[in-house]
Write a protein that binds this DNA or RNA. Structure first.
Lengths: 225, 225
DNA sequence: GAAAGTCTTAACTTTCGCTTAACCTCGCAG
DNA sequence: CTGCGAGGTTAAGCGAAAGTTAAGACTTTC
């Protein structure tokens, strides 16, 4: 759950190393860039969840980069936090106005940084967790609304189908045994016939595309793309 | 767009006044409470978008209040920021772990505070945009006056209907389970029959239009357009 | 204290999601 | 080639869950 992607943009190698070390220790995936221009390139390619931007940088500074990032559609929703040398309160205003979500002051204290990063990610990834999760298959599920989107088209599934889909999509690629599916979707005390799962899988295949649901004979099913 | 509701919880009247003044100047709607317990009561009633919580308070401190708020379903999604006297870096960790989204240090500088509040609200209100809004259904509720407007026409609903509607509309699109509805509108200790909710939903559909209330069989109801 | 309004319940109907039974297909082992 | 095991397919029927309606118990209003 915590392998969120973080892009770190700073021109000082020491800082990059320090932060990278601490974030990777927490299982985040870290990308780095040493100026704003390069940061934007990488951001477009990797679509990180969070960008940590140093304010002072050669080539293109953090403020400019932030403003530009906010105009890039693929990066809508990315969280941006500035890193700044001194707690210059009033300079923060410019940062927030440029579209920043947070301001972290140097000197960086590793534990504080990690806590802060987690707090920033919690809202979005927390939302993703309960709300929706996407992947390359073009299928997005929204648990709060009990709705599934297939290539942007809204689609509402009955309870059991929805729960089965949620389960399979919770770990794409992983095979869930019939047993596990039964205990998870139906509960341990309900006894249902052998063909019940198949029928539900069939409905999902019908509605969401055959290719996403793979049968592993003798074992179970998995969601794939 | 900026009349977001902000709940301010602090035991010092000076601070309440100062912050209230500055936020109201920016067209935010501000509620205040002077301790955690009272804050939670008001939060449940007003469903603010953002809560500013002082850490040090009598009765129930900010940390406790934060933890409790995070367990209240109607308040899922509310943003919580702590106000703290000194930039005690390491104490922030506990705050973030309790579910805080931000940390604002005293002494409060008005312009910084306002910028920060706007930055915090930007993310969610941006998100709500995709969820669309209650406006598109033509239904607006006014909690202070216990009044509902449907396409501009005033309409007064009985208590239970009003509360049910408020709950459903607090997060349009989200499905509320029957259980949740019961505990939220009727309270945990009242026992009512199975059909009670249905009848109230029926009344709402009758008065406000069938299409806005969707049934998710086996799960609950949601407000939609 | 009648009238109007509110909430809950009971009894009945309707809907539609879930399960099953019966049959089909595929692939593999003997 | 045959038999068997595992999964696929289909449609029908059951039944739980929601919709509907009216009536009864309370409350508030005037």
């Amino acid at each position: 759950m915590d392998n969120s992607k973080i892009l770190l943009v700073d021109d000082e190698q020491d800082i990059l190393d320090l932060i990278r070390y601490n974030l990777e220790k927490e299982d985040f995936t870290v990308f780095t860039a040493s100026n704003g221009r390069e940061g934007i390139e990488i951001a477009k390619k990797e679509l990180p969840d969070l960008i940590l931007l140093d304010v002072m940088m050669p080539e293109m500074d953090g403020m400019e980069a932030c403003t530009e990032i906010r105009t890039i559609p693929e990066l809508a929703g990315v969280i941006i936090a500035f890193l700044t040398a001194r707690s210059e309160d009033y300079s923060q205003i410019a940062g927030f106005d440029a579209g920043a979500d947070d301001y972290i002051t140097k000197p960086i204290k590793p534990r504080v940084l990690v806590s802060r990063v987690k707090a920033l990610l919690r809202r979005t990834s927390g939302k993703e967790e309960t709300n929706s999760s996407a992947n390359s298959s073009g299928i997005v599920i929204d648990k709060d609304r009990y709705i599934v989107f297939k290539e942007g088209v809204e689609l509402s599934l009955p309870k059991k189908e929805f729960e089965l889909l949620s389960l399979l999509m919770s770990q794409p690629g992983r095979v869930f045994t019939r047993e596990l599916i039964l205990s998870s979707v139906w509960g341990n005390d309900v006894i249902v016939g052998d063909r019940t799962i198949d029928v539900h899988i069939r409905k999902l295949r019908e509605k969401l595309g055959d290719s996403n649901f793979k049968t592993v004979k003798g074992v179970g099913y998995k969601f794939d793309d």
